[in-house]
Design a protein around this nucleic acid. Structure first.
Length: 559
DNA sequence: GTGATAATGACGGCGGGG
DNA sequence: CCCCGCCGTCATTATCAC
């Protein structure tokens, strides 16, 4: 979204000289218009705007192979990149994984669909003669202004406004912004103020600290002064977006995701600050952070408060007050049996080695005490409440117990997400239109609903029938006034489909979702392949769809 | 009895933090 | 250095639907 790259698409445009970007950028002509690109957005901090990925994508190479090759070899050595791509394709694998790339129709389709989408966008813009807006955008960007500065100026003043006046407007806005930044302390300057002057490592210094504390840009009662941050221009809404995934990934994954999601700094938050269970997650979003408030009532913060019946049987030497992360599987009956046998054998005061064994098992499987020397895994009902859903949210309607554990373990902690989304309440008092990707059991929807934000429109993309049924029945039971639309597959969410949907909804206010963590999660012993793994590479569909929504939003504003 | 689905047992390693 | 914790996957067995 950062760059609307300049490209002439009339008949004789095939021989455009791509090697000289600066020359190209100056070639603003009345017939020119811009083509959106899929490259990771580059902001002021990046050394160069990468368009090389587009070239390889246009040649038809699969999306994840292209990105992987560029990641391995940098953006400058074109020959090395091409060799790498050809090598990966010949081997049919990427380094560090053994899945077949060329036999994976999804990503290939995704890339080619995207390219088709771009051509489609070209013809839309061309046929409807919306060139004036892009001309002006071009001109302002060529003058060195960011996309967002140009967007704001044109939005406010209109695209027929003389350039001089637009420039004046931008300068005035920037002066006001600079004034606002006075008086911040060092850490806040690092986070919000002078960020754009710092290099990448320095920028991520705060995230490292963020990762350690796991309180993100603040949690309730943390005593942190909340000041609104400065989001890189390309990342700003509309629409707002909110992306989630596991905090602890193989190295470099969050940096990579942040690079795609407009260089926005992730916030890492442990849901232990919102509930009785730990849940370390990272969130990349462009929401304001000033004025957040928690859902009420505040849920129980300890195991003992959340599950009071366990108190009677809880031994003093088990000092846990917080549960570990809720996972998709529960501990086995066999393990709880062994624990009981060991404790029965050792009497009322078990020796150190027995305590250690029992505690280790309890921590590993999140067991709680339900009788004399008896531990048990959490029930699905209990998990529902701890995760912030109402009891029985996932129960019944043909859903097996195993499936309940599975989809609950994959879901948002509602109180945590609601805290981040709470700033939307005053922005959308009359309701919100949501594109919900990888919706699962509807954590985002439940959070917004609990915040009292009316759901005017929800387009939910979710591949699991079980999860779609759960969301649908919640929708029907929770007195919704709006409309819920289900889509099964992110691959079906093309430019054409999005245009159709956004004509119906008159745009989306929020694009929200967490893409699959299978290949990132620490629990995975077999296929922790990273962001390019079979499931986790669906991240690129999140980015693709978000980026298309941003482009269509701009287009609609000037259509 | 048979195929489908559900439940269960067995299975290391990486990265962060002290 | 050691410690802890992690939105999991695969193979097998048990149970279910017919």
């Amino acid at each position: 979204m950062v760059h609307f790259d300049f490209q002439i698409s009339s008949g004789d445009s095939e021989d455009v000289d791509w090697s000289d970007e600066d020359e190209m950028c100056s070639l603003v002509s009345p017939v020119a218009y811009h083509v959106p690109v899929i490259t990771p957005p580059t902001c002021e901090l990046s050394s160069s705007g990468s368009k090389i990925s587009d070239r390889f994508l246009e040649m038809g190479y699969p999306l994840k192979v292209v990105f992987r090759a560029i990641e391995e070899h940098g953006e400058n050595d074109e020959e090395a990149i091409l060799n790498a791509i050809l090598t990966y394709l010949a081997l049919e694998t990427l380094p560090g994984e053994d899945n077949h790339v060329t036999s994976d129709p999804h990503l290939s389709d995704s890339a080619s669909t995207y390219i088709e989408d771009l051509s489609d966008m070209n013809s839309i813009l061309e046929s409807q003669g919306q060139n004036k807006y892009f001309e002006t955008m071009n001109l302002l960007e060529d003058m060195g202004f960011s996309y967002d500065e140009a967007f704001a100026a044109i939005n406010r003043c209109g695209c027929e406004t003389p350039i001089d006046e637009l420039v004046e407007f931008i300068d005035a806005a920037n002066m006001a912004k600079a004034d606002d930044l006075q008086g911040l302390n060092d850490i806040e300057q690092l986070r919000y103020g002078k960020k754009q002057k710092l290099d990448r490592d320095e920028r991520w210094t705060y995230s490292v600290k963020n990762m350690q504390l796991m309180i993100g840009f603040g949690v309730p009662n943390s005593g942190m002064k909340t000041v609104d941050r400065e989001i890189p221009a390309a990342g700003k809404g509309p629409p707002y977006f909110y992306y989630e995934n596991v905090a602890y990934t193989p190295k470099g994954v969050w940096e990579n995701m942040s690079r795609f999601l407009y260089e926005i700094e992730p916030e890492f938050v442990d849901s232990m600050h919102f509930s009785a269970a730990a849940r370390k997650r990272g969130y990349i979003h462009n929401l304001p952070i000033d004025g957040r408030f928690p859902l009420l009532p505040i849920p129980p913060f300890t195991i003992q408060e959340a599950l009071p019946l366990t108190n009677k049987w809880w031994p003093k030497w088990d000092q846990r007050t917080k549960l570990n992360c809720i996972l998709i599987r529960h501990g086995s009956a066999e393990d709880t049996k062994k624990i009981k046998e060991e404790l029965d054998k050792s009497g009322p005061d078990p020796p150190e080695h027995v305590r250690k064994y029992v505690l280790e098992q309890c921590r590993r499987y999140n067991f709680v005490w339900v009788g004399k020397n008896k531990v048990a895994p959490l029930d699905p009902d209990e998990i529902e409440v701890i995760m912030g859903y109402s009891k029985y949210h996932t129960r019944g309607g043909g859903i097996s117990t195993t499936a309940r554990y599975q989809c609950l373990g994959n879901s948002f902690q509602v109180d945590t997400v609601a805290y981040h989304l709470s700033v939307l309440k005053k922005l959308f008092p009359n309701g919100i239109k949501v594109l919900s990707l990888f919706s699962g059991i509807g954590g985002a929807e439940v959070a917004l609903h609990k915040l009292g934000i009316p759901l005017k429109f929800v387009v939910s993309v979710e591949s699991s029938e079980t999860c779609r049924n759960i969301l649908q029945s919640w929708w029907e039971q929770s007195n919704q006034k709006g409309k819920l639309i289900h889509i099964f597959d992110v691959r079906d969410v093309t430019l054409g489909k999005l245009k159709e949907l956004m004509d119906m909804t008159e745009g989306f206010d929020l694009v929200i979702g967490g893409s699959p963590c299978n290949n990132l999660a620490g629990r995975n012993r077999y296929t922790r392949d990273g962001l390019y793994g079979d499931q986790s590479s669906l991240f690129f569909d999140y980015f693709r769809i978000l980026d298309l929504v941003k482009k269509i939003t701009v287009y609609r504003a000037y259509a």
